[in-house]
Design a protein around this nucleic acid. Sequence first.
DNA 1: TTCCAGGCGTATC
DNA 2: GATACGCATGGA
Length: 270
Amino acid sequence: MNVTDFFVQGDDIVLRQSELDLDQTLDCGQAFRWERISPDTYHGYFLNNELTISELQEKGVFKLHNVSEEQFRSVWFDYFDLGSDYSKMIETLSEDETLSKAVKQYRGTRILRQDPWETISSFIISQNNNIPRIKLIISRLCEHYSAYPSFEDMKAETVDTLSYLRAGFRAKYIVDAVGRFNSGEMTTEKIKTLSTDDARDELMKIKGVGPKVADCALLFGFHKLDAFPKDVWVKRVMAQYYPDGLPECTKGIEGVAQQYLFQYIRTVKT
DNA sequence: TTCCAGGCGTATC
DNA sequence: GATACGCATGGA
């Protein structure tokens, strides 16, 4: 059992969590608003909350700078999914040979509990795009609004008003999503209550949201761990290692397995 | 210059 | 249902 342990130190929170790797968690293509500002430190945002987090010399020990205990408990504990036991999931996934290699190499990957609207809109931007440019487009959006905008904030946006994003053909998809949530046709509260399959069907009503974007939103924004986004990289790993489908040990946590396989196939030497 | 990037809509069969 | 192709943009 892997337990999260923390204490207050001055204005900071010191966190002990052996199953957390900042690179694999904050710079792995699940979130687009984190920047590595030094080898051991990341700076970024969740909604209107800003955070600088460093790993200390002692591995598995982190400092969350200028964070109160209240803010840690109410925001960052959930965001980093610190209530889940990743060592147990890793043990289960390691029953498979390829996954055991991926897990060994990328241990400390966690599935962040991000904002539903932010992940829906971010992964619309992600389609047929590369990670540096996705981050650039999202940074332009956040700079424009001084924070990640809600769909209410974006109510009046059109393809033309979004042209500064340089998002290309994706701008019309963002406008479509904004419209559906603002009209009340779609609500994140309702999607939360649906099964993964029904939630995917619901999200795919948005123009520009297909199975991959929907599954990313479900995994990273709604924490549905059985969602399994198949991007170009995961399709490669499936063709190479799992032509007959995922192994039994991934059942129920396919999304966690996916994140390890995504990292693995992007760097494995063949 | 051509190819590619955490895909999807549309046309066609 | 499956397959082919175009799509905005910018870096390699």
